[in-house]
Design a protein around this nucleic acid. Structure first.
Length: 350
DNA sequence: TCTGGGGTCCTAGGACCC
DNA sequence: TCTGGGGTCCTAGGACCC
């Protein structure tokens, strides 16, 4: 076979693997990275090593629960700058491959566009290049578009290679629940099931116009396309331009004093202003240095877990900390409740 | 399972304007 | 004056992903 291919490269147990690289004695042990590494705190699992997953530990699970599932798990604090640095190294390796176009999707994954006669051999070559340069293992999904390549990765985990194209799409995916599709979560799965659409094959055979009426003019037909495995075919290497930047904090103890709430919102706003003025977060920074905010949004999670957002367009674009803090405080005043708060967030939109 | 933090995109209703 | 239609912006919320 020859022609253009899409590869989805996904690093295995990325955060845990980075920690094992610098703590080799942890190899093979149940390792959980998340929060400040303290399982008594309000925090969740960012990444669990495969050994930890054998005990039923999963991403998004409270650290406290992980500790109950496996008492001898090693908890480590998330060290985002370290992961960003390793990620940048991996992306450089990918960009250095001959004849590839790279679209970065996150710290631990990227799409590659390539023309080759032996795509399976090329995938192995990618895995070896990443491992040689960084010591990290990866899985490669191969497809005739980004959707199929991304889904293929799931069948290749860990360390494997899997091919998913129009040829084997229905054979591999047709009988699976719609949730197996990238872009369909629990809610949409349920909504579709209420309409009798339970499997990927059901969805593929559905009438796009009927779903448009039920699920929205864009999303309805889009879901049918997902069921058919149809998606974007060209990998786009254009650097990402962020649409927004924000910070949020969950308090270890609920905040009942609204003077304190105002103080926290102002502090978050100043921090966000500083970061967007500097051009982003972390070692490498993000593109769009110094771009001013046009809108500001405030998130309040009330006790126990009800989350509300308010936002406002700023009088003029700004990166000024005082202006952003003042605007965020005005938005905060528009929340009708003064109940105790568990989380606060401030987000700047460009 | 008492539930993080960083994002993106879509939808719908109302305001507002011509 | 009892009432159209289109376009765009603003805002809140939902859903999803890593």
């Amino acid at each position: 076979m020859s022609g253009r291919w899409v590869l989805h490269v996904d690093l295995d147990e990325f955060l845990a693997a980075v920690e094992v690289l610098r703590h080799p004695e942890l190899a093979g042990r149940p390792v959980v990275v998340g929060g400040r590494g303290d399982p008594t705190e309000r925090a969740v699992v960012a990444t669990a090593s495969y050994a930890a997953r054998e005990h039923g530990i999963r991403s998004g699970m409270p650290l406290r629960t992980a500790a109950k599932r496996c008492p001898d798990v090693v908890f480590l604090p998330a060290d985002n700058p370290a992961y960003e640095a390793v990620s940048a190294q991996v992306m450089d390796v990918l960009r250095g491959l001959d004849g590839v176009v790279v679209e970065v999707m996150g710290w631990d994954e990227a799409f590659l566009g390539v023309q080759t006669d032996d795509v399976a051999a090329f995938a192995r070559h990618v895995q070896e290049a990443v491992h040689a340069a960084t010591g990290l293992r990866s899985t490669v999904g191969i497809g005739d578009n980004l959707l199929r390549a991304k889904i293929a990765t799931g069948f290749g985990k860990p360390r494997g290679v899997f091919v998913l194209t129009a040829q084997n799409w229905m054979e591999v995916m047709g009988h699976r629940p719609t949730r197996a599709l990238w872009g369909i979560g629990v809610r949409t799965e349920r909504t579709l099931a209420e309409r009798g659409l339970r499997t990927v094959a059901d969805l593929a055979a559905a009438d796009p116009a009927a779903l448009a009426a039920d699920l929205g003019p864009a999303m309805g037909p889009h879901f049918v396309q997902l069921g058919r495995g149809i998606g974007r075919e060209h990998v786009d290497p254009t650097p990402w331009v962020p649409r927004s930047h924000g910070r949020e904090t969950t308090f270890q103890t609920d905040l009942g004093d609204w003077d304190a709430v105002r103080g926290e919102v102002a502090a978050l706003a100043r921090r966000v202003a500083g970061e967007i003025a500097a051009g982003g977060t972390g070692a490498g920074g993000i593109s769009g240095a110094g771009r001013p905010a046009r809108r500001v949004g405030v998130t309040v999670r009330f006790v126990p877990f009800t989350t509300r957002t308010r936002s406002a367009t700023l009088p003029g674009p700004t990166t000024d900390p005082d202006a952003l803090a003042a605007a965020a405080l005005e938005v905060l005043e528009r929340f009708p409740s003064r109940r105790a708060v568990r989380l606060l967030g401030v987000r700047a939109e460009f």
